[in-house]
């Protein structure tokens, strides 16, 4: 049986009455704290690169790379998903979370082999981020280039 539009609207309302709301304040605070702390660690790494004489701009990419490695390692050790349960987007939005989203499917896909498993699955979650990042950046940069010049 398939509920008609009225019945399913009715049922959705009943469901809304019964379902707990996510603890938004707690989640947002946790995301703020963990996200902020990850950035503080990143700032320390940035500072280390800059103390070697790099400009902040030049140091940004190697800092990101170090954070990617850290996120990948914590995922391999099985710790990052535990952090994420508490932190939500606080651990997903920093680039360490990007690394997590690459390592997690890759780890699991190992059983399906290194080509069809790891190779194909590496970007199952991170893929959309790269695709839309590149597309959005291309559009935004082209627009700016066309309107304002380089």
């Amino acid at each position: 049986m398939r509920a008609d539009a009225a019945a399913s609207r009715d049922y959705a309302g009943r469901l809304r009455r019964h379902q707990p709301r996510p603890p938004i304040l707690r989640n947002v605070l946790a995301a703020f704290l963990v996200g902020g702390l990850i950035c503080v660690v990143g700032q320390a790494v940035l500072g280390w690169f800059m103390s070697g004489g790099m400009t902040p701009k030049d140091a940004a990419a190697p800092t990101a790379a170090v954070m990617v490695i850290a996120g990948a390692l914590l995922t391999g050790l099985g710790l990052y998903d535990e952090l994420a349960r508490f932190a939500g987007m606080g651990s997903a939005l920093p680039i360490t979370g990007f690394a997590n989203s690459i390592v997690a499917p890759a780890l699991e896909a190992k059983r399906e082999g290194y080509v069809l498993g790891v190779g194909a699955q590496l970007f199952t979650i991170a893929g959309p981020v790269i695709v839309y990042g590149v597309l959005a950046a291309l559009a935004a940069a082209a627009l700016r280039y066309g309107l304002v010049g380089p």
Partner: peptide
């Protein structure tokens, strides 16, 4: 998601 992926689950 893959088990090691850091996703937060909603209370439902």
């Amino acid at each position: 998601y893959p088990v090691e992926f850091g996703a937060q689950r909603p209370p439902t």
